[in-house]
């Protein structure tokens, strides 16, 4: 704890922390994170610290490196420089599945569900690390198997109900409508019992009323599970509505950080999105 907090205190300017979270240990810290693909620097000196119950956003023009940052945070890519700390522990060299076990869950920009399995089974796969039933007791169908399955079923149904998916529990994930698939992906991510949830464009392809619903849903997730949420989104309505802090990236670098109001009026952000005003 002490070693870790020293690290954070040394770099207070990283923080996206809300005021009420300032005294708490951040769940996620990216320390000077960077990755090169061959000669191309995709992400460079990316610094954030996210508080335990904070909703923060990551925005930027297309190709700015937002999804690459998510892949770095979840261990899909190994960073060339810098480190990712989840609850104060460095995830360097960890397999993505191990990183997830540390308490980070994510959804994908292009939905990645287990299409041939039912919605309920998708959520139960998400609970994989919390089902403690040994291989042999499930092969022999010992009482512990039934006990753990029943508990898993109950928790999966609770989560599906929470996301409004209870009536499609037995439908194959691949045959669900698009919006429902997005919600199912969030349910599956929540099933891993994370400390921080990363959402990669959760509102992509949604109409305004669906987006409004999603906005409320994101807040409900935070309030119910008391977890941090970090999201990538192009829909500015959603971002400005739901996020308490925003980081803006362009060409793999953070160009601005702050509250939605500050971001709205930041000249660097306006330039990145709309281009520079020509001197006449």
């Amino acid at each position: 704890m002490s070693d870790y907090s020293k690290k954070i205190l040394r770099v207070p300017s990283y923080s996206l922390l809300r005021e009420q979270d300032a005294d708490k240990q951040p769940v996620l810290v990216a320390n000077n994170l960077g990755i090169d693909f061959g000669g191309l620097t995709a992400v460079d000196s990316f610094n954030v610290a996210i508080g335990p119950t904070e909703i923060s956003g990551l925005i930027g023009p297309n190709g700015a490196g937002k999804t690459t940052i998510f892949n770095l945070l979840t261990g899909v890519y190994q960073p060339t420089r810098g480190a990712v700390l989840i609850k104060g522990i460095d995830t360097k060299g960890m397999h993505p599945s191990k990183v997830t076990r540390m308490g980070i869950a994510r959804t994908f920009q292009n939905i990645r569900l287990f299409t041939d399995m039912t919605a309920k089974d998708n959520v139960k796969v998400g609970m994989h690390k919390d089902i403690h039933c040994s291989f042999f007791s499930s092969l022999l169908r010992l009482p512990s198997y039934y006990k753990s399955e029943r508990a898993a079923d109950e928790k999966a149904m609770e989560l599906l109900e929470f996301m409004g998916l209870a009536d499609v529990a037995d439908v194959k994930a691949g045959s669900l409508p698009y919006g429902v698939q997005r919600r199912l992906e969030i349910a599956r991510a929540l099933a891993t019992n994370p400390a921080i949830l990363l959402l990669d464009e959760p509102a992509a392809g949604m109409n305004p009323s669906e987006t409004a619903e999603l906005t409320a849903q994101i807040r409900r997730i935070r309030d119910t599970f008391q977890i941090a949420i970090f999201l990538i989104e192009h829909d500015m309505n959603l971002v400005m509505n739901v996020c308490e802090a925003i980081a803006v990236v362009n060409y793999g670098k953070i160009i601005a950080k702050g509250t939605p109001e500050e971001i709205k009026n930041d000249p660097a952000v306006i330039e990145a999105y709309l281009g520079k005003k020509e001197e006449s």
């Binding site: 899909v76 599945s97 997830t100 076990r101 287990f114 796969v125 994989h128 039933c133 092969l139 599956r188």
Partner: peptide, 26 residues
Amino acid sequence: NLVHSREGRAIKAVRDNRIAAESVGI
């Protein structure tokens, strides 16, 4: 019994989408 257990679900999950399976800790 394998197919209907935690292990079986994980195996099917890897079949359906390897990256997503790793993202939920498998």
